[in-house]
Design a protein around this nucleic acid. Structure first.
Length: 505
RNA sequence: GUCCCCAUCGUCUAGUCAGGCCUAGGACACCGGCCUUUCACGCCGGCGACAGGGGUUCAAAUCCCCUUGGGGACGCCA
């Protein structure tokens, strides 16, 4: 096991949490954090807590909360407790702040935001590091009293130990031992001047209350950890175990964010564009973690079994999408995972996703689940090998589900216009196919071969011409399997209409 | 600017902690070939990396130091 020097902890139930702030949509980075937490909980038969950290009233929105819930649900990362809302615990946060005040671990600071801004700017101009100088810490008791009486607003700051040798350390499950001198930690604010507590306090208090054993979060939280440990120490609470995961960066190597990167990093976008949720999870799991045996594809159960915090890489990874690339509109490896799942997953698991896609596109017919059930399954099976997303079932696959499909200009040029004789040949072929008593890939192939031979033309010409006439493209499954699936009536009809695509000279 | 972290193919990574099995392995992407009525799939092959410099050692991708590069944190945001 990976527990470090917390004696009784290995016998305790593992409890982890995903604690997003509802200030924007759930993005790939956040989803990966949720995934790792979920995996660790499931692996240890633990509890996965969802906590919405909404203490930033100005930026938190109801809509963002819903997006988070929807996103996790879509991914299949079900939580066991929550969602808890951080603001609901405000009383306890304040009570804790007061306790810290009473025990001398915190103090009231009357400096105004404006004063501090001036100091910060001055420090910046002088190119020196700014840290709050702790002047209010030395305020005489009667002055504090006077200011409070007068109603001067104040914040509450944590009184970081000022002993030059003092340090805070913790054993990170990913990064190893992390140590920070107290001198490098300023007296951070834990309660705003309007009385509302800040994240750094709330987070620690809530983790304690929710009995969190492992804090698994992005490496950008690493700098906060010493501060939170200081709070735990002041409160006499044993801190949880920390595991910071490397950040996910964009191709320009800057931290992924909704604000900078737009929809391509949002979860909702992947759902819209036709990703299978588990394919995305599988891909995200590999952004910073690897299996000892080099395996890349996992079922949920397999990943839970294989996953281990100790195998998380320390280096940041790049989410390699290139804006403007239509084919690789997101990380090519993510697309590869999605395509592989679409191609290989059990049909009964894939079909509901295809159904949803066809419904969205208005191509769904109830008969696909009734008398045409077999046909539907066979069709999906036939075409899925070359699709990368579910979306393609309704776009590239449209000709299988509707007579209203489009013809690709290049395909028409290459397979029809190049052979003007097809204008006469295709309807003639249609007549012949219409007479077939059995219409399957064997009988149609026989018909095509003998037809081509009779006419003294290469079979490929009539084969490819037919492909374009019945599907609008030059690519797809083997033609005869395709014809079988399309069915006699539709094939005959489409071939009879073919001359309209080939203008007579 | 200060503090912290990181560094293997274009990208995700194995190998680093316990130095030799590494003329560095896999995956994606890309390129070529085979298969084939097309496109995919599949199979075969190719391209392609230990950031640089010093040490330590019989031996360094692996340990140490420096440099460089990248990232993060420095809010009355979370």
């Amino acid at each position: 096991m990976t527990h470090i020097s917390h004696g009784t902890e290995s016998t305790m139930q593992v409890r982890v949490r995903f604690a997003p702030s509802p200030t924007g949509y759930l993005h790939i980075g956040g989803a990966r954090t949720a995934l790792y937490n979920w995996l660790w909980a499931r692996k240890n038969n633990g509890v996965f807590v969802l906590r919405i950290e909404d203490t930033d009233l100005e930026r938190s929105t109801e809509e963002a909360v819903q997006q988070i819930l929807d996103g996790l649900t879509w991914l299949g990362l079900e939580w066991d407790e929550g969602p808890y809302f951080q603001t609901a615990n405000a009383a306890k946060h304040l009570e804790t702040a007061n306790r810290l005040l009473e025990t001398g671990h915190a103090y009231r600071c009357f400096c105004t935001k404006e004063e501090l801004d001036v100091q910060r700017e001055a420090a910046e101009a002088a190119r020196i590091a700014y840290t709050y100088d702790g002047r209010c810490r030395r305020l005489p008791a009667e002055e504090i009293h006077r200011k409070m009486e007068a109603g001067v607003p104040y914040v509450i700051r944590f009184a970081t130990p000022r002993d030059p040798t003092a340090a805070v350390a913790f054993d990170d499950l990913v990064y190893g031992r992390v140590e920070k001198r107290c001198l490098d930690i300023e007296d951070f604010v834990i309660v705003r001047s309007d009385g509302r507590p800040l994240y750094i306090l709330c987070n620690a208090v809530d983790d304690e209350q929710d009995r969190i054993t492992h804090v698994i979060r992005g490496a950008d939280g690493i700098a906060n950890t010493p501060k939170q440990i200081l709070i735990y120490q002041a409160l006499g609470i044993k801190p949880p175990v920390f595991a910071h995961m490397p950040l996910t960066l964009d191709s320009k190597r800057t931290k992924l964010s909704k604000r900078r990167h737009g929809e391509v990093v949002t979860l909702a976008y992947y759902r819209e564009r036709g990703f299978l949720p588990w394919a995305l999870c599988n891909f995200m799991a590999l952004l910073g973690w690897s299996s000892p045996d080099g395996r890349e594809f996992f079922t949920r159960e397999e990943l839970i079994e294989a996953f281990d915090l100790s195998r998380i890489n320390r280096a940041n990874s790049v989410f390699n999408y290139v804006p403007g690339d239509e084919k690789n509109w997101t990380d090519p490896k993510a697309l590869h995972f999605n395509a592989t799942y679409i191609r290989t997953m059990p049909m009964d698991e894939l079909l509901p996703y295809v159904k949803a896609e066809l419904m969205d596109a208005g191509l769904w017919r109830d008969s696909f689940e009734g008398e045409r059930r077999e046909w539907f399954s066979r069709t999906v099976d036939l075409i899925r090998a070359r699709y990368h997303t579910l979306k393609e079932f309704s776009t590239r696959g449209r000709c299988y589900f509707s007579d209203d499909f489009t013809f690709d200009d290049e395909a028409v040029k290459k397979n029809l216009l190049k052979h003007p004789s097809l204008r006469e040949l295709l309807p003639e072929l249609a007549d012949r196919l219409a007479k077939l008593a059995v219409f399957d890939h064997e009988s149609t192939e026989d018909a095509f071969r003998s037809f081509a031979e009779e006419k003294g033309i290469k079979a490929g010409i009539v084969i490819n011409g037919t492909r374009t006439a019945v599907s609008g493209t030059s690519v797809g499954p083997g033609l005869f399997e395709m014809l079988e699936v399309l069915g006699q009536d539709r094939v005959v009809e489409r071939l009879r209409k073919a001359p309209a695509l080939i203008p007579a000279n």
